[in-house]
Computed example of a mutant assay.
Amino acid sequence: NEEKKHGSQDLLDLDPVPQTPVFDITDTRTEADSATLTVTPVGLQERRGSNVSLTLDMCTPGCTEPYGYGAQLSPRDQSAQEYLRQGTHVLTPAQLHSRAMDDQALQAEFYETPMNFVDPKEYNYPGLVRKNRYKTILPSEHTTHTADVLRVQGYDDEEQAYIATQGPTVNTVGDFWRMVWQERCPIIVMITNLEEKNEKCAEYWPEDAVTHEGIEITVVSVTQEDDYSLRVFTLKHDREERSLRQYWYTSWPDQKTPDKAPPLLELVQEVERAREEAPPSSGPTIVHCSAGIGRTGCFIATSILCKQLRTEGVVDILRTTCQLRLDRGGMIQTCEQYQFVHHVLSLYEKQLSHTSEE
Rank of each mutant, 00 (worst) to 15 (best):
N1Q: 12
K4D: 15
H6S: 14
G7C: 07
Q9S: 14
L12H: 13
D13T: 07
D13A: 11
D13V: 04
D15K: 12
Q19H: 04
T26K: 11
T26F: 01
A32K: 03
D33L: 01
T36Q: 14
T36P: 00
P41S: 11
P41K: 13
Q45H: 06
S53Q: 05
S53D: 01
L56Q: 02
C59S: 08
G62F: 04
G62P: 06
P66E: 11
G70I: 01
Q78R: 03
Q78C: 05
Q81H: 04
Q81I: 13
Y83K: 11
T88P: 00
P93R: 14
Y111G: 00
Y111E: 12
Y111N: 09
P114W: 02
M115H: 08
P126C: 09
V129M: 11
R130P: 03
K131S: 12
Y134L: 12
E141R: 07
T143Q: 08
T144V: 10
H145W: 15
H145Y: 15
A147M: 14
A147N: 07
D148E: 07
D157M: 08
Q160I: 00
V170D: 15
N171L: 01
D175H: 09
R178Y: 05
W181S: 02
R184E: 08
C185G: 04
V189F: 05
I191L: 15
E196D: 15
N198C: 15
K200C: 09
K200M: 08
C201I: 03
E207V: 10
A209C: 09
V210P: 00
E213A: 13
V222D: 09
Q224V: 13
D226V: 09
D226I: 09
D227G: 12
L230Q: 10
D238G: 06
E240W: 01
Y247Q: 06
Y249V: 10
D254S: 12
D254W: 02
A261E: 13
A261W: 09
E266W: 02
L267V: 05
E272C: 05
A274F: 03
P284F: 05
T285H: 02
C289V: 09
I293F: 08
I293L: 11
G294R: 11
R295N: 01
T302G: 13
K307W: 04
R310I: 13
E312G: 01
E312T: 15
T320Q: 15
T320H: 03
T320K: 06
Q323R: 14
R325A: 03
L326M: 15
Q333A: 09
F340Y: 15
H342T: 02
Y348A: 15
S353N: 08
T355K: 13
E358Q: 13
E358V: 15
